[in-house]
Amino acid sequence: MELETASEISRPPSAFQRTSDRVFRAVSLLFAWATILVVLYIVWEIGGQSVPALEQYGFGFLTGQTWDPNREQYGILPEIWGTMYSSLLALLIGTVFGVAVAIFLNEGYLGGATYGILKLFGVHLHPVYSRLPSALENLLKNLVELLAAIPSVVYGLWGIFVVIPLIRPACNWLHENMEWFPLFSTPLSGPGMLPASLVLAIMILPTIAAISRDALVAVPPKLREASYGLGATRWETLLAVILPTAAGGIFGAVVLAFGRALGETMALAMLVGNANRISVSLFSPGNTLAALLANNFAEAGGDETKVAVLMYAGLVLMAITLLVNMFGAFILQRSTAGLKGLN
């Protein structure tokens, strides 16, 4: 047997091997191109169907504020505003928590604490218990990533039945006492930007936490050791050395999460209130592009103008998401390329 395998390696490839190699290469290439073609086809199809709306409404579609099917006047500025507003707000909340989770998991806080407790009981070298610190970190990491597995509609229901009643008293208190502050200028009656953004923040948390953690893992141990060696405290090391080094990767995570937040549909359609208005207030209902599409496509049916208008809105959403994602991927690529030299 051994001789046979050895001789097989030393033999030139047979005709069959060469053919299968070529076939495999061709098939791979085909599928790779097919993926790209599907994307292009979708863009082309949506673009093609939105042509009537593009011709009729042009650029004014992006700046118009009425949505009046009765008079065939359409504008999606409130939806663009709502999409950006809810996504940025969610991003703000999600980044704070996501990066904190990543640091907590990667910098040994949990592991350290567990180890300390084990040591207190004198079991830190026990064959089973000594595994606990890393097992707990792993568990928490998986739990955070599990957030990504919860269906969007469940988040929406949870938002309606839990988040809104929970935050309503606090929001209305803020509104009553600080009405002069633009962010609190309207009361929270139910669905609105804040509950939508809170839920959205939880939905993008796994993305931020996972990619930020990867960025932190990629920080060379040398840097950390050097910093401690110079007498820096853990806090100083974290803020002055580790986070700046991982900043590119974390920023990439944030931008990718932004891309996800922009396109999130179901939970937002349930929580944002579907109101066609532009308001700075955190508590005002609004609308997003994705929610607009989800709510209107079902019955756009035979109305060609409306289909074209919705396709146009879809195109705008795709353009925004694509730009953001490309930007994120670019940043991520730059940051990891910069780290290679350090390793």
């Binding site: 949505w67 009765n70 008079r71 066609n276």
Partner: peptide
């Protein structure tokens, strides 16, 4: 706002299906 099966609600009412 006028009358119709679907209109542009004043003040941006919340919409539901």
């Amino acid at each position: 706002p006028g009358a119709g099966k679907e209109i542009d609600w004043p003040g941006g009412a919340m919409l539901a299906a």
